[in-house]
């Protein structure tokens, strides 16, 4: 089963699912960061051009700091650079914990390897070949970039009447039916009926009636009375 999620086993013996971020979204995040850095440097050069040589020196220092420490500072204090934050990404260690200074320094130092021979070609290949979408810096520092999802609300659904239906279903099948009911708000009425019609031979009805019956089944399964 191909999944872009990654099961992380905690010391408590349970899997937490993390979703590593791949090429697409990380390219976008990088571009956003590049833009931010470019704007800052441009603004600095504008502001510093009137201060003569000292300004040039300051600009060099700024260039250096932004080059090497822009990602590091943001990663250790905010969890990710603004570009990554914008796309809901966060940098964590392999065990899912927030990144700290050594890890962040390492992964950003090794940016200079990822960039070889030009325009992050090695990083691209490394990301493709890794199940957790790690570039070389991530491999060395033991980090990865994952999507940060906030805990979602469990969707509730309403049922008006409760016809009694009993069918012997496996757990997975029950899960499908509950998911049907929980996500029913995002589907159109016709589509709901179409889906419910799939079970026509078992429910022995079609259309609206089948939808109601199926939802009732789901309600029964989750224990709604």
């Amino acid at each position: 089963m191909i999944d872009n999620r990654y099961a992380l086993e905690t010391p408590e013996g349970i899997d937490i699912m993390l979703t590593p971020a791949g090429i697409g979204v990380r390219t976008m995040a990088f571009v956003v960061d590049l833009l931010i850095r470019g704007v800052v440097l441009f603004a600095a050069s504008m502001a510093l051009q009137f201060t003569g040589n000292m300004g040039q020196g300051l600009f060099f220092i700024l260039l250096f700091c932004i080059e090497w420490f822009y990602p590091v500072l943001f990663e250790i204090y905010r969890g990710a650079t603004p570009g990554k934050k914008y796309f809901g990404l966060v940098v964590v260690y392999d065990n899912g914990l927030p990144i700290t200074l050594p890890g962040s320094m390492l992964r950003n130092l090794f940016r200079s390897i990822d960039i070889l021979p030009f325009a992050y070609l090695s990083g691209f290949v490394a990301i493709l070949c890794s199940k957790q979408f790690k570039r070389i810096g991530d491999h060395v520092a033991g980090t990865m970039v994952v999507y940060q999802d906030t805990p979602s609300k469990v969707e509730h659904f309403t049922v008006d009447e409760l016809p009694q239906i009993t069918l012997s279903l496996t757990l997975e099948e029950q899960q499908t039916i509950v998911a049907y009911a929980e996500r029913s708000q995002s589907f159109s009425e016709e589509r709901l009926q179409e889906l419910a019609n799939q079970l026509e031979p078992m429910l022995e009805c079609r259309g609206e009636e089948a939808v109601i019956k199926l939802k009732a089944m789901a309600a029964g399964l989750v224990g709604k009375v």
């Binding site: 905690t10 204090y77 999802d149 906030t150 469990v154 029950q174 509950v178």
Partner: peptide
């Protein structure tokens, strides 16, 4: 018990936050 995927993912996220809080490495300078 194969409860609904939405519930599982909710608990999953909550657990991740908890893990990050509990096992958080220090970040002093």
């Amino acid at each position: 018990r194969h409860y609904s995927p939405a519930l599982i993912s909710h608990l999953n996220q909550l657990l991740l936050l908890g893990q990050q809080q509990l096992y958080k490495p220090h970040n002093r300078i």
